[in-house]
Amino acid sequence: MTLSLGLGTRKYGPFLLSLVVLAAIWEIVGRTANILTLPPLSSVLVAFGKLWSSGAVTAPLFDSTMALLTGLAISLTLGSAIGIGMGMSRVIDVAIGPYVKAGLSAPLIAFVPVFLMIFGIGSETRIATVVAFSIFIVATNAATAMRTIDDRLLEMGRSFGASRWAIFRDIRLPAGAPYFVAGLRLGVARGVKGLINGEVLIAIIGLGGLVKKYGTVFSMDQLYAVILLIVLYASVAVGGVTLLSNLLVKDKANTA
């Protein structure tokens, strides 16, 4: 027990120490300097507690999560379909590959003002942002998943007279599973960013709306509390899906 504990402190000790030091500096500077932009850590935590217990964040939290899930559902189905098409057909790959590649790295966030004007300030805008942020990484991974297959396995399948569908279901999909899972994980990570980005730019809905609300009135301890909440939200979402994908892939490795 002491051994693993010892290794743990050796590995994370410096980081935890730096975290404590930073927190202490924040608290001390916040108390003594009395700067508007830096309330002491303790009052931020108090504000966080109040925010949580008052129920002021419950509705936005639920609201945001629904939008995130809707956007992710669209990205996963549509993105996987596009990616599978690209992976199976060279024509589709040549035709839409460049757009998917561009969508992966271009600053699509520039379209948020357009979404905002067409869809209005409702949920559609942030759902569109979630989709724009996540669909291309899902498609790219799905395409890789389809292409990663060893040609000899396909030949084996054909030599046994397997139909195209049987080859797809029994050979291509299982072989590509790790890439699909990676696409899911990265899609969620990007989708959460898309969600918050969209909400902050829309400025009045969900968690991002709260940032804007407290930011504009310089209610700093509440602002920091909301930022803390968003950080926790993103960490839980990304951490959760990472855990899930580790389970999925490991499970596959064991049965394979």
Partner: peptide, 27 residues
């Protein structure tokens, strides 16, 4: 030592939506 201190923060910064701290920068 630098790796042990810096790396966790970096992993964290990559995961969170940076846009949330814009009001702070603005302030």
């Amino acid at each position: 030592l630098m790796d042990k201190i810096v790396s966790p923060y970096l992993t964290f910064l990559v995961a969170i939506p940076m846009i949330a701290i814009i009001p702070v920068i603005q302030a």
